[in-house]
Design a protein around this nucleic acid. Structure first.
Length: 226
DNA sequence: GCGACAG
DNA sequence: ATCTTGTCGC
């Protein structure tokens, strides 16, 4: 793999950018477009596909899709995940003709050992409100939220007790998702938005749609390159 | 030393 | 992430 940054250089970038994160709502009260992102990986090559999907906030209809395929430039290292997925997603972002009001990322935001997960990185680099919604925990301790849809319990940093995110029961009786601030949004708003996007499944529709189109783009691309 | 570890 | 259909439980 043609890695561009060393591990230490990536950590230095995180320490530098983390200071720019804004944890208050700076998104429009009347959200019109909400974005979802996801990256697909090939089972036996370094090929990946990134997808950006824009949905109408009220109808959840797909408004625009942009994808990009390339080879990974950074290994998977817990805590440095954004350096693996940001490159493809940035390329996909460049192909969009519209700007979303907020981006839901597949992973953590502040719920990260250095408080700088993918959602923070995305929000800072694009200067767009962003939040993280992960399927599993990376950092922080929590109690199991109530079984009913919408139940929340705080994710507390194990180093200083900081409230870095929420474990949110997006559907009754199934495992919670982990919501945290990315940039220009509050934890409360982020949590409310994720719950609103989880209409029928555990994961937000934004993430599910991005996964769908990303997979589609990946298969089409691989078929042409084969 | 041992376990944990977003996707 | 990926390997992967049927199957166990409510």
């Amino acid at each position: 793999m043609n890695t561009i940054l060393t591990e230490q250089a990536a950590i230095d970038v995180q320490e530098q950018l983390r200071t720019q994160v804004i944890q208050t709502d700076m998104l429009p009260a009347d959200i019109k477009l909400i974005a979802g992102v996801d990256v697909e990986y090939d089972k036996d090559s370094d090929l990946i596909a990134g997808a950006f999907v824009l949905l109408d906030f009220n109808t959840l209809e797909v408004v625009e899709v942009a994808t990009h395929c390339m080879e990974v430039t950074f290994p998977y290292i817990p805590g440095l995940f954004s350096f693996r997925e940001m490159p493809v997603l940035l390329e996909a972002w460049k192909k969009l003709t519209q700007r979303p009001d907020v981006i839901i990322c597949d992973g953590q935001g502040l719920a990260h050992p250095r408080r700088f997960g993918l959602a923070c990185h995305m929000g800072i680099v694009l200067d767009v409100p962003a939040l993280g919604c992960g399927k599993t925990r990376l950092f922080g301790t929590y109690e199991q939220p109530g079984a009913e849809r919408g139940s929340v319990s705080p994710l507390l940093a194990e180093d200083n007790g900081e409230h870095i995110g929420n474990a949110l029961r997006s559907q009754e009786g199934i495992n919670p998702v982990f919501v945290s601030v990315g940039h220009k949004i509050s934890l409360d708003t982020a949590t409310t938005l994720v719950l609103k996007m989880c209409t029928t499944y555990r994961l937000p529709e934004t993430t599910r749609k991005a996964d769908h189109y990303g997979r589609e783009a990946f298969l089409a691309y691989r078929k042409n390159v084969e």
